[in-house]
């Protein structure tokens, strides 16, 4: 059974008087524990697709099914719950809160979810250990390198034990070596049966994924 299904997704924008088609009839399915890379040139609709999959945006037409439930039928509260408990987001720009240390940044989603899965300190330490930042627990973001900050962001996305991770250009702000390390970490997550969908314009890294979706002008090619 597919964890995530995108069915005939179309997304139109109005830019001034110009109508822009960001996605055009995009369909695919993602199974549990798969590593998917969405790639393509700038403006091809990669990020728009990721946002729709993560319930941050709505398609103009078409449907997304998460665990066979149509997202368009979900209430605001149900969407909040999907973002809290099923999805883990990793952003290009990390978005760590500067006044919080590593452990506090990682635990931030628990504040919003109320920690229904009873996540314990040991589990958080396990994530930090897995990501190689256990010794940076008490450091503030300004004391970390770019690679470390992205690891913290990944740890934050994992804290609620999500079913899938959506990562938007997670290596864009990193050098090649750090970018590769982050990808290797994402692959390790897949080994732990977590589904990972990553948007990247880096073909070399995209080739490390099990499945590659290439978008061009909003269409899968």
């Amino acid at each position: 059974m597919s964890l995530l299904i995108a069915q005939n997704l179309t997304k139109n924008y109005q830019r001034g008087i110009e109508k822009v088609k960001a996605l055009d009839n995009v369909s695919f399915a993602v199974n549990r524990g798969q590593f998917i890379a969405i790639t393509g040139p700038s403006g091809s609709g990669k990020t728009t697709l990721l946002h729709i999959l993560g319930c941050l945006d709505k398609p103009t037409s078409g449907e997304v099914y998460i665990d066979n439930k149509p997202v368009s039928k979900m209430t605001e509260k149900e969407l909040d719950n999907v973002r809290r408990l099923k999805v883990g987001f990793v952003f290009q720009q990390f978005y760590l809160l500067p006044e919080l240390n590593v452990i506090e940044n990682v635990k931030l989603p628990l504040l919003f979810s109320g920690n229904p899965k009873k996540v314990e300190e040991e589990y958080i330490d396990e994530i930090l250990n897995f990501l190689g930042i256990i010794n940076r627990k008490k450091h503030k973001p300004n004391q970390l390198s770019g690679g470390e900050m992205q690891r913290v962001a990944i740890a934050r996305s994992l804290v609620n034990k999500p079913e899938f991770i959506l990562a938007d250009e997670p290596t864009a702000n990193l050098d090649t070596e750090n970018g590769k390390k982050i990808f290797e970490l994402l692959i390790k997550l897949v080994e732990k049966n977590i589904t990972v969908i990553v948007v990247t314009h880096n073909n070399e890294l995209a080739n490390m994924a099990q499945k590659k979706i290439v978008l061009k002008d909003g269409v899968i090619v």
Binding site: N81, R83, L85, Q93, Y95, S113, R156
Partner: peptide, 16 residues
Amino acid sequence: TQELGMMRAIGASKTD
């Protein structure tokens, strides 16, 4: 704005 947007993305409700 970006930070609050990020919070919404990682599960913060409007009430939060």
